[in-house]
Design a protein around this nucleic acid. Structure first.
Lengths: 227, 227
DNA sequence: CAGTGTGAAGGGGTTCACAGCG
DNA sequence: CGCTGTGAACCCCTTCACACTG
């Protein structure tokens, strides 16, 4: 269907999601047309990149005019597979898992959270919003029965690989992992990580760089004033 | 001090954090030495990349032997700025902000969460663990008084930019943003995003690719059997 | 003429291969 | 001899510049 080349940068896919979000806002505001330049300004990006990204998937624009807002958004949603809904199950009824289960914002984008599970027996049977926490024994049947395509791993690092294995064996097609471990999965199996420690530590690094620059600036200033 | 070149890939910094985590585990297990090859196997990576990453910051290894586990980890922690503690404040006492405030795991890595704030008056005064939710009016003084270096933005998208402006003006040196908007910040100001929608939508895309491949495989199979 | 679509150039990061050293 | 440290080759993504079209 789409996919003119099969070498699409991963960064492009990430931006596709952002484009779609921007277009949704424009659509709500009643904007009918946008140029690549305008889209670029609404995120951080360049017009050339917007055009190149979109061109991987088709010729959505009109030369001299720009892009039709709602038409382009429909196309991007389709490319991202958000037109057919995606079924999700969460494993881990701790703070992260519960927060996620209670958050309804994803449903607007086609994700339905159908179930929440936990490895700890003490949590099984508890309520999280409308859902009852289920046992890991039930997960295999549940995934198959409800066609769960995406598994969310929100358990302590120690259990993460085991939970991932269960989910994959049960038949999910992708994983979103909140545990700070890199999961071993079949080649090509889609996984994404949410790892706050890494993000915070990289921020810490860059703060250090800025601090250093300031010290250097200060040193230069005192040297100059000493002349 | 360190920094032999000033062109260090951002991906390298991300991996630095992972190396440090791996080393911490090895240290706990009583392992004294590792090779770049072994480190690579414990995350997903190659030995060459491990060596190149580390070489940006110094010569930490011994040729023919490998790296001293705890020594290397100490060095990496220092590079990441985790030896001196980092003070954090959270804005937004919704689910995300509260989860984060209640999570104590970061303290082992040198991050101290000192305060939680909210834009909604109804939440001000509430308790989150040991902390009392403060009003946004108090944030400027608080940041200065407690030397808060990192601000966490955990408010709805609508308020995110405004909150970011407040935090930057008050003097924080970096931002971790959970709102699905790209923040406008001064040039070079460190920001990281946690954007679950983007992650889930990229997963959805790659699931679509796999689905397509399967359809193609199925088509080929039926064609072949039709001969 | 304005703005898309795209080949070509450029730049940044990863991989390779080996020199260097304990 | 083993494993690190590193210049060079390679590859992929981004940026540039312009041909093309409504």
């Amino acid at each position: 269907m789409f996919l003119k080349a099969n070498k699409i940068p991963e960064a492009t896919i990430t931006r596709l999601s952002v484009y779609s979000r921007v277009l949704q806002i424009l659509e709500k505001n009643g904007t009918l047309r946008v140029s690549s330049e305008e889209i670029a300004q609404l995120m951080d990006g360049t017009a050339a990149q917007v055009r190149k990204d979109l061109a991987y998937f088709g010729e959505f624009g009109t030369r001299g005019i720009g892009y039709d807002v709602s038409g382009l958004n429909k196309n991007l949603m389709k490319v991202l597979g958000l037109n057919k809904g995606r079924n999700v199950a969460i494993v881990g009824a701790g703070r992260v898992g519960r927060s996620l289960a209670l958050y309804s914002g994803f449903e607007k984008r086609g994700f339905r959270n159908l179930g929440i599970f936990d490895v700890e027996h003490s949590r099984v049977g508890g309520q999280v919003g409308e859902l009852t926490v289920m046992s890991m024994n039930e997960i295999d049947d549940f995934v198959k029965e409800h066609n769960v395509q995406m598994g969310v791993v929100a358990v302590p690092a120690f259990y993460a690989q085991e939970v991932a294995n269960c989910l994959i064996k049960a038949g999910v097609r992708s994983l979103l992992n909140f545990a700070p471990v890199s999961l071993v999965v079949p080649l090509g199996f889609p996984v994404r990580y949410v790892d706050l420690s890494i993000l915070m530590e990289t921020l810490s690094f860059y703060m250090g760089i800025e601090e250093q620059k300031e010290i250097e600036r200060a040193n230069r200033a005192t040297k100059r004033s000493a002349i």
